[in-house]
Amino acid sequence: MAKKTLNIVESAYRAVMEEQDDTILWVLAAMQGAGAEHTVVLRANAVNYAVAGQGAPGMAVGKWTQTQAPKMDRDVADLIEKRKMTVYVIVEDVAQRGIEKRELMSGIRLLPRAALPGLYEEHAIVSHW
């Protein structure tokens, strides 16, 4: 049985247009496919990944156009719905950024900062990305 791993993700939108996904959420999904057991906490600016209805049009440079531009809420939904990961957002970080709870995608779980120690204790490994 895989070690239960808690992944605290704070980096956001760093290379999503170039990679057409978030490289951290991507590697977690890929590891889950290889048998890992992950829980995800989105904190800091990464809480914005849980906002529904995001995604820029693809880039265009002259005749070169991007056809598969990322939508980060879609990728978070994939973690929750397809890969059955539990994904939390830190409620204080959501509030700090003016994000209203009704703007968050369905399936996301709210976690107060004070609850992190308890969550840490439930996991064998804690990784901060």
Partner: peptide, 21 residues
């Protein structure tokens, strides 16, 4: 593979293509 897309479907951007364009 996470998105279930092959090379053609993913149409992954490369910066060299952007420079050429």
């Amino acid at each position: 593979p996470v998105h279930g897309k092959n090379v053609a479907e993913e149409n992954h951007p490369t910066t060299k293509d952007q420079v050429a364009a």
